[in-house]
């Protein structure tokens, strides 16, 4: 429960996020024209997953594990943990 330790971890988390985001942008330096993005729009390519499955999964894991977060804001309001 050390706030200083958490602040240090948060700082390194932000730096890691920036570094990975930069890598991600660099990895995508080759352009993909709009007419070549058909595969990206096909069913199953949704990066956020299926909404109902995601809801069920979050509901279960939130109530059975200590870690949560990463995929959105707003907890969904469950007293199960």
């Amino acid at each position: 429960m050390s706030g200083k330790g958490f602040a240090a971890t948060a700082g390194s988390g932000v730096r890691t996020m920036v570094a990975l985001a930069t890598l991600l942008a660099l990895a995508a330096c080759s352009s993909v024209p709009a007419w070549e993005r058909g595969a990206l729009a096909q069913p199953g390519m949704e990066i956020d997953g299926h909404p109902v499955h995601s809801y069920f999964d979050n509901h279960i894991y939130f109530s059975k594990e200590a870690a949560t977060g990463g995929s959105g804001v707003g907890g969904g309001g469950c007293g199960c943990n």
Binding site: M17, L20, A21, A25, A27, A28, S30, V32, R37, A39
Partner: peptide, 11 residues
Amino acid sequence: QVIDRRTVAQL
């Protein structure tokens, strides 16, 4: 980020 015409990633 769209990585290529078959790959998308999120952070």
